[in-house]
Write a protein that binds this DNA or RNA. Sequence first.
DNA 1: CTTCCGTTGCACACTGGTGTGCAATCTACG
DNA 2: CGTAGATTGCACACCAGTGTGCAACGGAAG
Lengths: 209, 209
Amino acid sequence: MCNNGVVPTESSRVRSTNETRDRILDVALDVLGDNPDAGMGDIASAADVVRRTVYGHFPSRLDLVRTLTERAVTEMTAVLAEVNASDAEADATWVEFIARVWPVAHRYRVLLALRRGEYGEAIHGLLGPVDELLADLVKRGQDRDVFAQHLPAGILSQLAYGVVFAIADSDLSNGTLGARAATITSLLMLGVPETRAIALVGGGSIRWR
Amino acid sequence: MCNNGVVPTESSRVRSTNETRDRILDVALDVLGDNPDAGMGDIASAADVVRRTVYGHFPSRLDLVRTLTERAVTEMTAVLAEVNASDAEADATWVEFIARVWPVAHRYRVLLALRRGEYGEAIHGLLGPVDELLADLVKRGQDRDVFAQHLPAGILSQLAYGVVFAIADSDLSNGTLGARAATITSLLMLGVPETRAIALVGGGSIRWR
DNA sequence: CTTCCGTTGCACACTGGTGTGCAATCTACG
DNA sequence: CGTAGATTGCACACCAGTGTGCAACGGAAG
């Protein structure tokens, strides 16, 4: 009524509220990344907040995990949709995708662990759109004989990005080393010949030592 | 003293005791396979036994899991050592290994899930010998340029049999279909060219549909 | 028959996590 | 200053799982 039609300036009280909420979410991702079984108490203290406050923002543990998952899905689908729009060959698209999605995947790697157990159902449901986009990409590659066809696109895509997550979760996760290894490995299991895979990710020896 | 030097006949009481114990172990594998978080109660009732009886055989949940793991390690190392003794090329050895280990892997697939969480430490320790034998095999392949070298043998071997377990855990786990898919996929990610991989697992079209 | 022993049924204490209720406190905003 | 809203601290009830103690039952062995 009185703010000239401008959206209210989110009076700094509200801002600080949202900051707490976001901090909780960020920290939760870290803590759960270390230990998927961490409790609300662990998350709270890691966020410099009392357990009760966490419940103020997220009525239940499931709400927290769900919010986290929704965040991940949003970021992933954004990258996937954008990359998928290119008319490059499927294998090149895959390389582009891994490169762009690597930081996100590494950040949300815990969701893969969380898929098994308690919240598996809920997470699986929310992750559906990502799975579909991924399967579409692999299927496109299979239809043009760029990817191998020894497995249906749905399963092959799951395995391929499962490996990517697994590498993101390993010791190699730091630096570009992990991303490179993940890209090559996933390309190989998608049936892309080794020479082509190396060419796609950029030259240089790939020997480990 | 009185049984002519023959091993005592395990008086049928002892036998029935061991039968219960074995049944509990077998059933535990199934139940935990369905839900790695299943409790002692679930296992007990699935084995047609009271919870208290389970504790009679295994003082703690960890003891049960450990026994299960020891069983798995015994079976796996037996297969691995035997297969590894052949002087065939590493990729052929890998195929032989997967074929022989497939039923075992499928049976003990839950251990992979159990490695994360509570008992991870204990299981990881017991599984050490298996990991080493596996890494040796992959390394042998890398040294002779049969396998790709974009990752160190230790990690590559983990990823490869991680995929095998993942497929064993999926819908394809029935019949020889899963075994075939697992073999081809793991060969691909080990850097074996598609044509060679198909030749190794035996002819026939590999197209999914 | 008596003894041994695996099994049972029930009780109990303990732990660790979840989710709620409520009064007290602090602080930005008006 | 006064108020509203976020945060705190502490209380509680609740649940599920673990592991233990113990008296009973039942069948096979001696």
